[in-house]
Amino acid sequence: MKVALFIPCYVDQFYPNVGIATLELLEKLGVEVDFPLDQTCCGQPMANSGCETDGIGAANLFVENFKDYDYIVGPTGSCVLHVRDHFNKIQQTEEVKKVRAKTYELCEFLVDVLKVEHIEAEFPHKVGLHLSCHGLRGMRLGQSSEIVGQDFSKMRGLLEKVKGIELIELDRKDECCGFGGTFAVTEEAVSVKMGKDRVADHVRHGAEVLTGGDMSCLMHLGGIISRKDQPLKVMHIAEILNGATL
């Protein structure tokens, strides 16, 4: 199985530790992982701003970088969703179709492809899980609270396998954090208020660590936490699953 690691641009630049944790975690699980060196961005920032055509170059480059792998795995629901849903704007060659179908979010890959049953990690802390919208409602990594049906969450399922972890319950289990890409800047007031409310929910329920599958949401929430000097830390889910300590 040839697996390529897809590290979103902002993770590459600002959160190398998340990339390292993802890589090490996959390696621990016996996967041989390659990191194509010429990767940049999936093109989502342009597309979500209405400038889909400006993202076409990035999309083509993405396909070029990843076309030869069986699976493409990234620690992000948002960028993966973009590859799957919005690469319909480039010509649908066999390569493009394959890349779209074979690009996985990390937790989804662990659960659905590797069928991981055991996680070698211990994290004896109170943890709040932020379910990022694109992973949740876009990729259906879990049941959103609006839908009537059996509740499930692939991320929560994995975290529950971590020794000593205590997952807290939130008042609003899957409300958006307010990041939203350029929304965070163009709708600054609402974005920040949404973020503050999410953080408050986690603080109210005693979370020591706020985790999630998308560093973009966590960058936004972490920025608010840091500015207000609040008593909790943000960590990507890959870090916890990889056995990080606080």
């Binding site: 600002f14 990339g19 890589l23 600054e188 960058m219 840091s226 500015r227």
Partner: peptide, 19 residues
Amino acid sequence: WGKSRDLPPPPKESFRDWY
């Protein structure tokens, strides 16, 4: 962005550099 949020502290290297 910085009106009410901090930026993450810049790391010494990118993931690619580390890799």
